[in-house]
Design a protein around this nucleic acid. Structure first.
Lengths: 163, 163
DNA sequence: TAAAAATCCATGGAATCCCATAATAGCCCA
DNA sequence: TGGGCTATTATGGGATTCCATGGATTTTTA
């Protein structure tokens, strides 16, 4: 399997460590594991985005259009690279979440890992529940718009409720 | 790991010494460490740019586009090379910031190191906070432009069938 | 010779490694 | 089908290493 799917909730222990769900770990290994996962605060949600090499390359791609040494590039780099943490995975498949990341997502004792295909997100469990409900509501509305709930003809995403 | 990512804030001690964040140091070593880091005042910000060989080569690359002995090239050379300092790293991974550089970036007691991929920047912590906010705003705008919401520019797969 | 710079040493706290345990899931074989 | 064995996983807790930081000592330079 090569995509992050499903959700899991794990504990944060006294040292700030969290187990990465085993299925996610194996995805990361197939993705060219380079010593750790890339993790940064989501731009518009109280959550963290995480992933492996594929995610890192995506970030590179966003910057490629911009000329070196332009102020614009530097500015964007601050948001894209400056916020990224490389969290190394210990021998037991755990990472430790830096304080800055934990505060962004209100993570205290538990983390909900949510697979999003190319990447995954980490949420405060309750916050995610709310989000999840909203997302499903929106998805239903869309379906009735399209009629019959027979899948998703246009291939559009589910109303952007995610992230 | 081969690029500068993440942000770290370190102290300047009484002698003007600052620890380079360990992850940055290891990037520099992989980058062909040549005795010190290249450091110069950012052209359009109250910050310092720093990096290793890759950064030096990029500066060279900019100049190569211009004809030899042209006024334009001379000017740019002065602008780019003139203010460059080579800061040697001591046995404990620290550098000493010359006064001229410190004044340009208003560095007094603390320095925030920001990874920008090929290079990194050094900011006064509070000044950086503002910059950081701007940068995230800009990134949001770009993101909607790119349609990079789910990290999937084409919007094709992952149509919301989560869980 | 005094001031400045480079090198060396010491330390507290944090991150990493290593091992132990309990719970779960998968499997084999009767 | 069921029962027991094994492998995997999440979690907890020491022990060790790494790192930022401060200070002392030596070397250089003015």
């Amino acid at each position: 399997m090569d995509r992050f799917v499903s959700t899991y909730t794990n504990k944060i222990d006294a040292k700030g460590r969290v187990s990465i769900p085993a299925p996610f770990r194996s995805v990361l290994e197939n993705d060219g594991y380079s010593g750790g996962i890339y993790c940064y605060p989501s731009l518009d949600a109280a959550a963290l985005d995480g992933g492996g090499e594929r995610l890192a390359q995506k970030i590179d791609g966003l910057l490629q259009g911009l000329p070196d040494y332009s102020d614009e590039r530097d500015e964007l780099s601050v948001a894209l690279y400056g916020d990224v943490h490389v969290l190394s995975i210990d021998g037991d498949g755990r990472i430790i979440l830096p304080q800055s990341l934990r505060t962004h997502a209100n993570l205290e004792t538990q983390v909900t890992f949510v697979g999003l295909g190319d990447k995954f997100q980490m949420w405060h469990p309750e916050t995610f529940q709310d989000r999840h409900k909203q997302a499903r509501e929106k998805a239903k509305q869309h379906r009735t718009l399209f009629g019959a709930g027979s899948g998703n003809p246009t291939g559009s995403r589910d109303g952007g409720a995610r992230e």
